Simulated assay, not measured.
Amino acid sequence: MHKTDTRTVANHIARQCAMALEADGHGPDDFYRHTGITRAQLVEPGGRIDAQRHRRMVAYAQQLPLQRGMLDIEPQHWLAHFPEVAQVCFNRPALRDALHQLLQLRGLIGEFDFMLMRENGSRVEIEYLSEFCPQGGAMQALANFKILSLVARAYDDGVPTAFEASFQGKAPWFAPAVSDSFGAPARYGQARNTLVFDARRLDAPYRHFNTLLAPHALEHAQAQLHKLRSAQRFSARVEQAIIDLLATSDGLQADSASLLPALCDGLAMNSWTLRRQLQQEDTSFRALELRAKSRESRRLLRETTLSVAEIGDRLGFSSQSAFTRFFRTQFELPPARYRQEAR
């Protein structure tokens, strides 16, 4: 039986990748076509990118020449999208605790790569492992190492920490800039992606540690991680798949009779298996279809200039009045008024 991969990555990762590729001269339409990611998915607040699209994005980025776009992403700006992670990692009693929390909370960011921390005397080595990068994932490692170095340097006392970065693959043309960002020469053509630094102050007390805020920040981050993993059930993935189909629908394939076979085709399973797995999570295709249409109708009303009739048609309703009745039942107000209040 086919088992759907329910792992996801925050859509901020895809957005940063798209921005980096565009900075390197690759048009956004190329990104959308090669990855299957839509413009709407990139801007959805709190959105996640599913396993299939993440694989396609990595494969697309890997086939392109190494450019500087990823290096130019400011880690401070990147971390601003993940305040739960930042609030914990920049307020721990010591650097060791901060690093462990960063590794534990990375699920809030994505679930397709891994970082392993090892200690060897006064040295710490962090290895980056990428599941979908046959060429080693040097650029992904670079982005992750930049975040990690930012956290570690927050716990410096005087002299900035120097990091010895090693990457698989050939050196890019901007290799000197990489070395400058870590404060020591980076090495290429290595067997592993690693970041090594002196850990003599690993357990030194952090003088800016806020004992009152720290437990609340950690509890909130752990709750968000638990919520995310609970939501990554099969039914959540089916609902998102329906929304994706609706976003590309011309209205003719948005009714239940057309959505179901298209959904099964995208998930590579038959309708019986789909219904059976949804039943095990106490829901149904019809319930998820209605929920998906509720979400997509609100997005279209907020973010587009389509008329109410056009939105109803796009979502597979037989008439504007049918869509209005559906929307009023869901949200206790007509779609036109929702649009007015949302704006």
Rank of each mutant, 00 (worst) to 15 (best):
G158M: 05
H208T: 08
S249N: 05
S297N: 06
I73M: 12
D255I: 00
I13W: 06
F285D: 00
R68C: 05
Q101A: 14
R229V: 08
L225P: 01
E164G: 14
I243A: 11
E84N: 08
R53L: 08
G183D: 02
L21D: 00
C133M: 05
Q101D: 15
A86E: 06
A80T: 06
L218Q: 11
P75C: 13
E310N: 11
A40G: 09
G312Y: 04
F327P: 00
A177F: 08
D72S: 12
T329C: 01
G189T: 01
D203C: 09
Q224L: 09
S235K: 05
M1A: 14
Q190C: 15
D180W: 03
T305I: 03
Q330L: 10
C17A: 15
E84P: 04
W173N: 11
K293Y: 03
A204S: 14
A231M: 09
D97G: 07
L142Y: 02
A292H: 00
R118H: 13
S179F: 02
N120D: 14
D203T: 09
Q253A: 08
E119G: 11
P45R: 08
A262H: 01
D50M: 05
V88S: 01
F145V: 01
N144I: 00
E44S: 13
I311L: 10
H77W: 14
A184S: 12
Y128P: 01
R343L: 11
G25W: 00
L260C: 10
T161N: 12
A199Y: 06
L228A: 12
D203G: 06
H12F: 11
H216W: 06
A223E: 15
E111D: 11
P334L: 03
A154M: 02
M115Q: 15
Q140H: 12
Y128A: 06
V58Y: 00
K170N: 15
S166N: 08
T4D: 10
S294G: 10
D50Y: 04
S307N: 02
D265H: 13
K3D: 13
F112D: 13
H34F: 04
A14G: 06
S284R: 03
A20E: 02
A268I: 03
N210Q: 11
A217T: 04
R314K: 15
T304G: 09
L288W: 01
F323N: 02
P93D: 09
I13T: 13
R302C: 07
V124W: 00
S166G: 10
A342K: 03
L333I: 06
E303F: 07
S149V: 01
R314P: 00
